[in-house]
Amino acid sequence: MTAIILKDNVEQRKIDALLNFLKSWDIDAELRITDPEKSVRTAEFTLSKGIWSDYDINSEELRQKAWNR
């Protein structure tokens, strides 16, 4: 199966024209409308892992130093 995803809101007459064109070439096509996926969960920024684990600094101090340049 091959999928074509139209990311913008497209007028119904244009969608109908596209489907008719595909069917004229004997391509079986159908229209499925779905809602855009939303981010369910955001990851919490943590200093407990990675390169900052050996340093005595918390996430607020790190953010403050990064944004005050």
Rank of each mutant, 00 (worst) to 15 (best):
M1W: 03
T2P: 06
T2E: 06
A3S: 14
I4W: 05
I4H: 03
I5L: 13
I5S: 03
L6K: 00
L6I: 13
K7P: 05
D8H: 09
N9E: 14
E11I: 07
K14P: 00
K14R: 08
K14N: 13
I15L: 14
L18R: 00
N20W: 00
N20G: 08
N20E: 13
F21S: 13
F21D: 10
L22D: 02
S24V: 00
S24M: 00
D26R: 03
D26G: 01
I27D: 03
D28M: 01
D28L: 03
D28S: 08
D28H: 02
E30N: 06
I33P: 00
T34S: 08
D35M: 07
D35R: 05
D35C: 01
D35S: 11
D35T: 07
P36C: 02
E37L: 12
K38T: 13
T42A: 10
K49Y: 04
K49H: 10
I51T: 09
I51P: 14
S53H: 08
D54T: 10
Y55N: 09
Y55R: 08
D56K: 12
N58L: 02
L62A: 13
Q64F: 07
Q64V: 06
K65Q: 12
A66H: 09
W67E: 14
R69G: 13
R69H: 12
R69T: 08
